[in-house]
Nucleic acid binder design. Structure first.
Lengths: 126, 126
DNA sequence: TTCACATATGCGTTATTATGCATATATTTT
DNA sequence: AAAATATATGCATAATAACGCATATGTGAA
């Protein structure tokens, strides 16, 4: 019972829904890419990812200095059903997030995350 | 977006999951019946029902002094999917709750909730 | 080996949610 | 009308969760 609740709780926060929406469409993303997409602080994104990971909804695989997160493919029926429900959520902010993520992913080199801040929306572009 | 989160949040609490499990199997139940089934305080059950109602997951219909709660049958796809996922939860406590509810429902007269405390588990039966 | 960057986390603060108790409101029975 | 019962809710407190900041750890680059 406690694990069911834990899983649902992990889904009951906006930032985490935003992260899942990204991972659902993007296959994988590393923390800095998610930070750029959500325009949230690094430590918050990192912490929310941890909550999702503890709930077994996402997994991270470390490659060099980056950790690529993606949806956990093999999980219990219950969690799959929840993720399918969450998939249904549509919202303006999710579209904007995804657009920013696509911009950021487009800058990958050899399918690898690139170094440094690349936010196209920050002060260096104004 | 906020409404999606609100709905998920309403599902992220144990008492509310227990209530939904009851309503899923029992078609309807009034507050005092749920109180007996869960062995929880009346005010807590009442408040948790309100959260579920605000999330649009349950509806209550008043008949005389009782309010019969049931799952909201006509709701958005997203909420249906969530409820279907929650339906999958199986746990010892849910079975016990259901057993107590059945005992209590069996005491209905003309399909109507009866008056007074009938907890078969309380001190008057020991 | 020093530096820059990627990610995680401890600590204190704030915000949100749940709970206990008392009590209010509504309805039915006597 | 008075008493009993069903349900809801205001208020204070306790328990959780989120956040901001600083900083630690790990890794690759210079």
């Amino acid at each position: 019972m406690e694990d069911y609740i834990k899983t649902i709780k992990s889904l009951s926060e906006k930032t985490r829904i935003r992260i899942l929406a990204l991972l659902h469409q993007a296959r994988d993303a590393c923390v800095s890419e998610i930070v750029d997409a959500l325009q949230e602080s690094q430590y918050n994104v990192s912490r929310h990812l941890k909550v999702l990971q503890n709930a077994g909804l996402v997994v991270g695989s470390k490659k060099g200095r980056w950790i690529y997160y993606q949806l956990n493919e093999n999980q219990a029926h219950f969690k799959k059903m929840l993720l399918n429900a969450v998939k249904e959520i549509s919202s303006e902010i999710l579209k904007e997030d995804m657009e920013r993520l696509q911009n950021r992913l487009a800058k990958r080199v050899n399918s690898q995350c690139i170094r440094g801040k690349t936010d196209y929306y920050n002060e260096s572009y104004q």
